[in-house]
Write a protein that binds this DNA or RNA. Sequence first.
DNA 1: GTGCCAAATGTGACCGGTCACAATGCCCCG
DNA 2: CGGGGCATTGTGACCGGTCACATTTGGCAC
Lengths: 371, 371
Amino acid sequence: MPHGTAPLETGEARDAPRDDLSSEVTPGAGTVAASAEELGRPATIRDVAALARVSHQTVHRFLQGYEGIRPTTRERVVEALAALEYRPNLTARSLTTGRSMRIGALTHELDQFGPSKIIQGAAQAARDAGYVLDILSLDMGDPEEIDQALQTVTQHDLAGVLALASTDHMAQAFGAANFRVPAFLAGEEDEFASHHPSQLTTVGFPALIDHLAELGHQRLLHVAGPTAWSAARNRARAFEAAVAAHGLVSVGVVHGDWTARSGYEAIAALPARLDFTAVIAANDQMALGALLALRERGVRVPEDVSITGVDDIPDAAYFSPPLTTLRVDFVAQGRRAVEHLLARIAQREPADDEALISQLVVRRSTGTAAP
Amino acid sequence: MPHGTAPLETGEARDAPRDDLSSEVTPGAGTVAASAEELGRPATIRDVAALARVSHQTVHRFLQGYEGIRPTTRERVVEALAALEYRPNLTARSLTTGRSMRIGALTHELDQFGPSKIIQGAAQAARDAGYVLDILSLDMGDPEEIDQALQTVTQHDLAGVLALASTDHMAQAFGAANFRVPAFLAGEEDEFASHHPSQLTTVGFPALIDHLAELGHQRLLHVAGPTAWSAARNRARAFEAAVAAHGLVSVGVVHGDWTARSGYEAIAALPARLDFTAVIAANDQMALGALLALRERGVRVPEDVSITGVDDIPDAAYFSPPLTTLRVDFVAQGRRAVEHLLARIAQREPADDEALISQLVVRRSTGTAAP
DNA sequence: GTGCCAAATGTGACCGGTCACAATGCCCCG
DNA sequence: CGGGGCATTGTGACCGGTCACATTTGGCAC
């Protein structure tokens, strides 16, 4: 269909410019389209060239920001571009250059706060760099489907591929795929278990455990995320390390699935007598669930048991009671992931990024330990 | 760079096939690449054609599912495709066809539960149809920036454009843009204020108000969303209509911004004496904030005041107390939006979709009205 | 005015898949 | 055994922007 559209007119337009140099400058008399409407289809550089009475290459040069164009020529090109409402066709461009302005983002669990924030940051960073983000939400679980989705990715020639959710499934599928383009797997930073000893007591989990220790808590329960998530493992490791560093006691690690329901069930399933004074949940949702379960058991928060989360979702400040938590900058993670990928695409070294420090936010869900 | 890669070899490969029909079938002897590695770049249909000793057109026909290919020929093509690990180049394809397999999704507020769920549904539906979703997250507010983002969209030739967030800003920007492709603005359905009288008492807000009326509530407060959102206006309208239909009293409509904070402040700002027995928040987050504000005022929920939300975010079941709310199927909304768009792209009539009914979920935040 | 050189501009091919149109090959009939 | 006609396959151009290279133009010195 797009082919057949008035090929003759196009042909004439291409040949016309060199003839009537002497005739009137006022367009519209010849076969050269002088306006977008007259053309009836998106303008190409050749349409613009014809109207500006230059070669398509000159138009191209102008668009590339080439300086050496005579002012008079340049002016004609500018006018023609405006008159025809020219917009470059990125598809054609990528066909020749072999590069595209698209980044594929593999993700799942888009309804989770973290991942969707990361996507938001990634989309921003991508757009700032003139790229668009192609979302490929995979339903994990069906390996067949993952495979098919990855196939799809390789066909849509992308400048690079980013994997954002950090489950083992994803990592595995990602590793096995042959994208033929730069790829970057954005896992959660190991910030919680910082290897810089100097920071151990000031950032992330150490700060959180510090806070609890100061309040006199000795025995802690960790409600962890699903083990298939590296973020969950990181946090669990960081928890254990911080506890050990403070000489406190971990009474156990229960695994949930990030949902409030799993946090609720983790607490509800405990024996009648609780042998801890603080619950450290690996995210705010599970903390919320734990909060309700404790309340239903007649346990007061924070008088009897303190509770903490991780993420600082916007709602956390309005839980009953408001939740003490570690704020994680997901948007920055997304931005950074894209920047890393862009660096790899451009074959530069990625900018040295400072650590993403998760910040302790103290609210009313933590208090002095019950005696 | 991709140009220069051994143009000679390519040229020879293109001409070679017809010569050595008699010589060995075993490849590798001539200049025709017989494997993906040997090629060192993605295989094209012409590479495949050369290896299969057919014309590029025959390969093309095979790929299009054309039946009339002699079995022996077909077999050679199949083998060549496999040997060279051929993957179609979608960029080249869209250049000629003028169609692409990409849908642009304009959105903002990706951190909101509703929008991100809608995106999830849209991405699923898109992928099911072989499309990918290009996310274009706009920062509303800066009209300059919106404009620029829309420019970007028109350059990435997309099969269609979808706008998902339903603020007036978006609607306006969307309406003003000239996408040159099918576009679809997915606003929230007017489901809450259904015009089908028969459904008025069974779905959405009517059901919610029904529920409260049965519990004896007479005086209601609505915490609405921001007026710039059509969803907020719909819900406010539906609230008023349902109240009127039941002969109840609306003591007022306070506008928040969807966040828990705004719900909290809406209640905190009220005079000491509350003249309502139920708060109807336009979403669950604001209900959460209201819940905390009431608690801090010493008001018990649901004994003194009942509270309801809308959306049924996963956390709502674990608020303290668990929230009575209207469940909205955002994923279905996203799917439907994409299906509508795809229908428009294919110039078919969209499938007749049944109403998306929001379902009342009764939990413990509502109880009999205080006397 | 002439010649030279760099600056400015033009030409044609190409990316890879698709399209319109041609040219074979093959089978069967008279 | 020749020829009609369909089945099968091939040819070349095209989409629009880019690249490598060729050609023209202008400015300046002589």
